[in-house]
């Protein structure tokens, strides 16, 4: 059985935010909720690297483990989804998640927390596939249509990949092999000097 995974190739990520807006567009995510965002380290200096982060769809999801109302479930291919009708907006999954994936759209200016929203791997939620209800609550269900998440499909440099973990790993492995022909990529020349 395939296991769905994301991978963001930091060598290719240019922080263009296509993944962020593709998700906003595809799922009509409101202002203030960021299912996906790009994180940059060493901004502005040599060694700057960016990586796109959303829900990692963990195999042993901490969000699911701590939810007091057990509104999470995992599909057979590893996508972690939740039922917003059950969600009480307690925020505990946000505490638990190491990636900050759970988001809470607010009703008013002063922090009343609404139902948790997060990346669904574009697989919707526990309601009829591709129904208006599903779209309103969870956004698109591309997986039910045989498509993959919009963020990865629209990544400007094909840094962000989403799909069967084995296939994603294949692509990344191939790239790594190609890059090994370029010691500069790994900082060899910086460490050992040119010509090594």
């Amino acid at each position: 059985m395939a296991r769905m995974k994301f991978l963001c190739d930091a060598e290719r990520c240019i922080e263009c935010n296509a993944c962020v807006t593709a998700c906003k567009n595809e799922n009509e995510v409101p202002w203030g909720v960021n299912r996906r965002r790009v994180v940059t380290i060493n901004d502005g200096v040599p060694g700057e690297k960016s990586i796109s982060v959303a829900c990692m769809h963990c195999t042993d999801a901490p969000c699911a483990a701590v939810c007091p109302v057990d509104c999470f479930y995992t599909t057979d291919d590893g996508i972690v989804l939740h039922d917003k009708d059950l969600c009480i907006g307690c925020g505990y999954c946000f505490y638990a998640c190491p990636f900050g994936a759970p988001q809470y759209p607010q009703q008013e200016a002063f922090g009343v927390r609404g139902k948790m929203d997060k990346c669904t791997f574009c697989a919707g939620g526990p309601t009829a596939n591709n129904s208006n209800d599903e779209y309103a609550k969870y956004g698109a269900n591309r997986v039910a249509e045989g498509k993959l998440p919009a963020c990865a499909e629209m990544c400007s440099t094909k840094a962000l990949l989403a799909g069967d973990g084995d296939m994603v790993a294949d692509i990344f492995r191939e790239r790594t092999l190609r890059r090994s022909g370029r010691p500069q990529t790994w900082g060899w020349e910086q460490a050992y000097g040119a010509g090594v």
Binding site: P30, W31, G32, V33, N34, K84, D85, Y104, P105, Q106, Q107, E108, A109, G111, G114, K115, D117, N132, D133, A136, K137, Y138, G139
Partner: peptide
């Protein structure tokens, strides 16, 4: 940082 601009949570959207 992320705006605190209020937005309706998706479940509360009226279709």
């Amino acid at each position: 940082a992320a705006a605190v601009g209020a937005a309706l949570p998706p479940t509360m959207m009226r279709r």
